[in-house]
């Protein structure tokens, strides 16, 4: 925004310099006609602006409030008052959200129980919804109780038995949410023999599993476990199973994960 462009300013622009929406359709002919009459009655100055972006030199594209363009054109006006906004996808999205044209999405990775409940209530109240039969309180509780931090898509919801099944219901649910999972973990450290590994080498591999919460390792204390492994008599081990008896949260399922980083 500067004095050398029109971003952020209310501008009176020629209608023929504005490219209208190619997807908007006005509610009804009579509403447009009546609105145009109202606009002309008050001198043709539209107090609610059309929202536009700069599409080129002295050329603009309608972003939202498309109704105003249709009414101004119907009224035969040559100029229309517009608010010029920044031409970035996020700014355009924001304008459409604030104009009520687009429903904003909520981040399900971090959403609270209250937020999930609120969104579900809104969705269930929409006409023609497939989520009418869903018990909002129960569904929201079940979803909120899950660790969603690593969800890459919405598929886990269908497995929660919360009434939101795969198909139409899940699609409708997904229309109001997005996910922001952490980026995939970096490539793992190289595999090495558990018998020959130093404490540092064991710790490095355990840290990898713990930091990236791989297969439930997020609850394992890497310092304690590496200490226990180093102090155990590893020379006689015929498998990694002795680790399960160290009473530090490693079960046979986790041993399977350990095998990706340690050999005998």
């Amino acid at each position: 925004m500067s004095d050398f462009d029109n971003v952020g300013q209310l501008m009176c622009l020629p209608l023929d310099a504005i490219q209208p929406s190619d997807s908007y359709s006005a509610p009804s002919e009579y509403i447009v006609a009546a609105a145009a009459a109202s606009l002309l009655q008050t001198g043709g100055h539209n107090w609610i602006p059309l929202i536009v972006e700069e599409a080129g030199d002295y050329a603009y594209r309608a972003i939202t409030n498309h109704f105003i363009y249709v009414v101004a054109a119907h009224a035969g006006l040559e100029e229309v008052w517009c608010l010029v906004i920044k031409s970035s996808p996020t700014d355009i999205e924001q304008a459409r959200i604030l104009a009520g044209e687009v429903t904003p999405k909520v981040n399900l990775t971090t959403a609270s129980r209250a937020t999930i409940t609120s969104v579900l209530k809104y969705l269930a109240s929409q006409p023609g919804t497939s989520l009418k039969s869903v018990d909002v309180t129960i569904s929201a509780s079940k979803i909120a109780a899950e660790d969603r931090s690593n969800w890459q898509d919405f598929a886990p919801i269908a497995k929660l038995k919360c009434g939101i099944t795969k198909g139409k219901k899940l699609d409708e649910f997904a229309s109001a949410f997005y996910l922001s999972p952490p980026p995939p973990p970096p490539s793992p450290p190289s595999t090495m023999s558990i018998k020959q590994a130093s404490k540092q080498e064991i710790l490095e591999r355990l840290n990898y599993l713990v930091i990236h919460k791989i297969d439930g390792f997020g609850t394992v204390d890497p310092e304690k476990l590496s200490e226990l492994i180093v102090n155990a008599d590893r020379s006689k081990w015929k498998s990694l199973n002795p680790i399960t008896k160290m009473n530090c949260g490693i079960n046979t399922a986790k041993v399977k994960t350990l095998k990706t980083l340690f050999t005998l």
């Binding site: 004095d3 050398f4 462009d5 009176c12 002295y58 100029e79 008052w81």
Partner: peptide, 8 residues
Amino acid sequence: SRIQKGAA
């Protein structure tokens, strides 16, 4: 408000 591009 009618000067497109303002001071440019």
